[in-house]
Amino acid sequence: MKDDRILLAHGSGGAVSHSLISDFFLKIFTDPTLKRLDDSAVLELGSDRVAFTTDSYVVKPLFFPGGDIGRLAVCGTVNDLAMSGAEPRFISVGFVIEEGLEVSELEKILKSMAGACEEAGVPVVTGDTKVVDRGSADQIFINTAGVGYIKDGVDISGSNVKDGDAILLSGSIGDHGVAVMSKREGLAFGTPVISDCAPLNGMVKAVLDSGADVHAFRDPTRGGLASTLNEFAEQSGVAITIDESKVPISEGVLGACEMLGLDPYQVANEGKLVAAVAGKDADRALEAIRANKYGKDARIIGTAKQTDRPKVFVSTAIGTTRILDMLSGEQLPRIC
């Protein structure tokens, strides 16, 4: 990694973020569990297996159509636990609050967090609060960590995608990113698009209970669907081909991305999952996802193949083929 300073691109969830992780963090922290780079760490405690994860939330603005930083902080960690096949059980929360934040704003955020906890059935059991002087933080940052229980026989990981697996997507892409960007200074535009921020532990449980042979789950947050598919391809050594006409994109997201010159495949989601399922069980898993209220628009979007050259391909709407590459740096609107 050539940069001598941390850039916004290092936080984009794309390739530059991955180089920060591989060139620094994985060289300094060498634990094999960390190296798996899954959504959660899967740990053995006695005869039980536990999923453990942490995530920080710095979204700006704090409130956006369809959600807020509080709901995001709970759903994000609940989903990371669920994506490891775990049943989320407890979460912790750490606040870093800037001097001067209005208490009424804080209260709104806390109530929203409590609502998300109740919906997901996962209580906040421990926490911490720090206040920093004005200018040292941007209103409020929230970190949440979570613990989940993994039943016997469940083996979910980004490196388990197998030859012949079907790739499932639980709904439309780009909704969260567009909803947040629409409020950002310099870009302000009206849009019917709202964030899809939602807890998905119920959906994951339904898929596991359906008996379908599932190999991997992941929620495509920062870096979007493109990052998640490339991570699966890299971790599992497979080539993934998706059919562009099967990937649901709402007209609002398409319109906003066309206007700003963005690729919907790289725009963030906060209430969607990608699943890699054995081909024979694809329909069963799809049915289980569609039964969940956040999975009505789920589709089978592609397949995985064994390869020595892991890559993601798109068969385009006009019948040709192209590469789907990971977002490299920070996502910026283009004019040209």
């Binding site: 698009v193 319109g255 206007m259």
Partner: peptide
């Protein structure tokens, strides 16, 4: 990008591109 003019006041206008205003 093609947008539909949905409101016009003098030289200022709102355009709709697939729901984005």
């Amino acid at each position: 990008v093609p947008g539909k003019v949905v409101e016009k006041k003098g030289l200022a206008a709102d355009v709709d591109v697939g729901g984005t205003i």
